[in-house]
Simulated scan of single mutants.
Amino acid sequence: MSYKDISYSLKKSNRKTISIFIERDGSVSILAPAPYQLEKIEQVIEAKRSWIYRNLAEWEDLNRTQLQREFVNGEGFVYLGRSYRLSLEEKQNTDLLLKRGRFLLRRDKIHKGADIFKAFYKQKGLKKINERIALYAPKIGVKVNKVKVLELQNRWGSCSDNGNLNFHWKCLMAPVSVLDYIVVHELVHLLYRNHDNNFWNAVDKVMPDYAKHVKWLKHNGADMNL
Rank of each mutant, 00 (worst) to 15 (best):
S27K: 05
I30Y: 01
I30D: 00
A34Y: 01
A34C: 08
P35V: 00
Y36V: 00
Q37H: 04
L38F: 02
E39M: 08
E39R: 13
E39D: 15
I41W: 05
E42M: 06
Q43D: 04
Q43R: 09
Q43E: 08
V44D: 01
V44E: 04
K48R: 09
R49M: 08
R49A: 04
S50D: 08
S50N: 13
W51E: 03
W51C: 03
Y53N: 10
R54A: 15
A57C: 14
E58A: 11
W59G: 09
E60L: 05
L62V: 13
L62S: 11
T65A: 10
T65D: 04
L67P: 00
L67N: 02
Q68P: 07
R69K: 05
E70G: 04
F71H: 12
F71K: 10
G74W: 11
G74I: 10
E75A: 07
E75G: 02
G76E: 14
G76W: 07
V78I: 13
G81L: 11
G81I: 09
S83A: 04
S83D: 07
R85W: 02
S87E: 14
E89R: 15
E89K: 14
E90I: 01
Q92C: 05
T94R: 13
T94D: 12
L98K: 06
R100P: 00
R102L: 07
L104C: 04
L105M: 02
L105H: 00
L105C: 01
R106M: 05
D108N: 13
H111V: 00
K112L: 14
K112F: 06
D115N: 09
K118Q: 15
Y121Q: 11
K122M: 07
K124I: 00
L126R: 14
L126K: 15
K128E: 14
K128Q: 15
I129M: 06
N130D: 02
E131P: 03
A134M: 03
A134N: 12
L135K: 09
Y136P: 13
A137D: 04
A137Q: 03
P138N: 03
V142I: 11
K146E: 10
K146D: 08
E151P: 06
E151L: 05
L152C: 01
